[in-house]
């Protein structure tokens, strides 16, 4: 449904996208995972025909993003990264406006957005600017869906939204997927990656990995030990000084540790840390998740001058 072919894009001195290629199937819920400034928004804007690529080409539903931009705009739904509805218009006015812009009406496609709109309908007379973050996001999604798009492009829809609303939002996306809408969604939250069919990890304008979340994590080479102690601040530094340490990153309340080989045991770390005057030490094996993979890819990416070769081997 979406085909991206060697797309590159630069802004003055900085190269935002470096020869990105990606293919997304019909009805797929595809995640674009990466930190701020990785190039997610640029890629989505190119797909939404809002920016022109410097080189390469892309098709949305078989339509070229440069030449057939007008047709694409009719068939796709887009939710930009920033809340971009009219704050001084009410919920209902916003929805009706966008419906008419796409040549349809609220009533005509009510069934598609019913479940989402239902939750904000009690507030339909309220100005969009006075809605809470979660409600704004539901309204924006309703507006993006009002013309029954075949493809939905969502740029960081869950940024700045509370945990409950985030979860609800992903449930809504799953339901939309059942209605055969192809969805490309970007997020800086690694934990949301597991909810996608496939994810593309993006960093510095390059794709590091494209696969299903389980395949990506299962290929993680090392074992991960999660560690905590009373002095978290010193813990990372001490772990990195450990002679068999490869990496140690803070993950919420824990530090995720990987050794240079898979022979580092949790008990070995406990003894070492006790020697460094740490108290209440916990250390145990855990399954790697997307974020572990990402941290590893990022750190190896920096070491490699050209990261292309290895990634293609993996794929």
């Amino acid at each position: 449904m979406i085909k991206i072919n060697n797309i590159s894009k630069s802004y003055k001195a900085t190269q935002a996208l470096k020869e990105i290629s990606l293919e997304i199937q019909k009805g797929e819920l595809h995640g674009l995972i990466g930190p701020d400034g990785a190039g997610k928004t640029t890629l989505m804007r190119i797909l939404m025909t809002l920016l022109l690529p410097d080189s390469g080409n892309a098709q949305m539903g078989g339509l070229d993003v440069v030449k057939e931009y007008r047709k694409i705009r009719r068939k796709t739904g887009y939710m930009p990264g920033r809340f971009s509805l009219y704050q001084d218009l009410s919920v209902e006015e916003n929805l009706r406006f966008f419906a008419s812009v796409f040549g349809t009406t609220l009533e005509e496609n009510y069934d598609l957005i019913r479940e989402i709109y239902h939750q904000i309908e009690p507030f339909k007379k309220r100005r969009a600017g006075d809605l809470s973050g979660g409600m704004k996001q539901k309204l924006a999604l309703s507006c993006a869906l009002i013309h029954r798009p075949q493809i939905l492009i969502l740029d960081e829809p869950t940024t700045g939204v509370d945990a409950v609303s985030r979860q609800e939002f992903w449930e809504m996306l799953k339901k939309l997927q059942e209605k055969e809408i192809t969805i490309l969604v970007s997020t800086p939250y690694m934990d949301e990656a597991n909810l996608c069919d496939r994810v593309a990890l993006i960093q510095n304008g390059q794709l590091l990995e494209v696969d299903s979340p389980s395949n990506i994590t299962s290929r993680f080479p090392g074992k991960i030990i999660k560690v905590r102690s009373d002095n978290m601040h010193r813990l990372i530094a001490d772990l990195r000084r450990f002679k068999k340490a490869e990496s140690a990153f803070a993950f919420g309340q824990y530090v995720h540790f990987t050794g240079t080989d898979n022979k580092v045991e949790p008990s070995e770390l406990e003894i070492y840390l006790a020697g460094c005057n740490h108290e209440n030490i916990e250390a145990e094996y855990i399954e790697p998740d997307i974020e572990d993979v990402f941290m590893k890819l990022m750190s190896t990416d920096k070491e490699k001058v050209v990261g292309e070769g290895e990634r293609q081997e993996k794929e």
Binding site: L50, R73, R74, Y78, V101, F102, G103
Partner: peptide
């Protein structure tokens, strides 16, 4: 909002 208007027909 111009971004949304531009992305529309």
């Amino acid at each position: 909002t111009m971004e949304v208007l531009l992305a529309s027909p």
